[in-house]
Nucleic acid binder design. Structure first.
Lengths: 141, 141
DNA sequence: TTTAATATTAGAACGATTCTAAGTCAAGAA
DNA sequence: TTCTTGACTTAGAATCGTTCTAATATTAAA
């Protein structure tokens, strides 16, 4: 979904579109690297020197609740965020801590609403390992 | 794998089998509820009143590195652990915070070693939603 | 405008995890 | 046995990511 569509979606739902909210969503739109909250916060601070962490956290929570961004709990103890909300697999490299998108065909959960009587609201298929770059660097595995 | 097999495995690899390590592994063997570190710590404290959090954390890390237990990063900001290491899907209920095992047939990642040039070392397929119990309780969704 | 509701801010508080330094234990050597 | 060495455990401090708080600023409605 385009940035404009997501902004319109917020507007439709009666959500005040502040500079800060616009900035967070725009940042995620332009940075598809699955940044952590810290990364988002310090990047935005360069442009908006007074933006606070609380606002970044609040905004990420808000955007997530509107279904416009995705929360990633792949790395122990810290959150990453993704502009893309369409379910897809993520790969986490335990050497360089980078989060990659990976395309997995034929996931049997796609489109499923229920499993074992539980209501599915979100899919977070995570794969952990060593990424191609770190394999090339011959970092000890 | 049975508890005895896992303990033997530790022995074979030359790992000192302390009371504390035995207790942590045994606790996970007997409690297949995917407990948090806090839960494990306070449960063990009842039997071993002087056990420290550091030991619990160290032991869990050690057992994980020997491939005898599995770390679960499904809940924001806290770790769960699982005695079962064979890859399987986990379901997290955002109402009651319980982690369930779920059986998903036909996962295309089973047995795969590589994806997009990345080396797969662990699979963590997570599903988030509302569990059957909470759905019955008619908790607002 | 005035008012009320909502959003932002800085920094404090919190909670999970990691670190540190001292103490304990176990195994091998004398 | 006693000594020594290295590994393990301990309690509590430190750290780090996240959430909360109270004051201020902004927005939307009357």
């Amino acid at each position: 979904m385009s940035l404009k569509e997501k902004l319109d979606r917020l507007n439709e739902k009666g959500c005040t579109l502040t500079i800060q909210r616009h900035a967070v969503l725009e940042y995620l739109h332009e940075n598809r690297t699955h940044p952590t909250v810290e990364k988002i916060y310090y990047s935005l601070k360069e442009k908006f020197s007074t933006i606070s962490k609380a606002t970044v956290y609040n905004t990420l929570e808000l955007l997530k609740n509107y279904g416009l961004i995705q929360e990633i709990t792949i790395e122990k103890g810290k959150l990453h965020f993704d502009y893309e909300v369409k379910p897809h697999h993520h790969f986490f490299c335990r050497r360089c801590n980078h989060v990659y998108d990976v395309d997995v065909e034929g996931c049997p959960l796609t489109g499923k609403r229920m499993i074992d009587g539980h209501k599915i609201e979100e899919l977070r298929p995570y794969i952990i390992g060593t990424c191609s770059k770190c394999l090339q660097k011959k970092i000890i595995v």
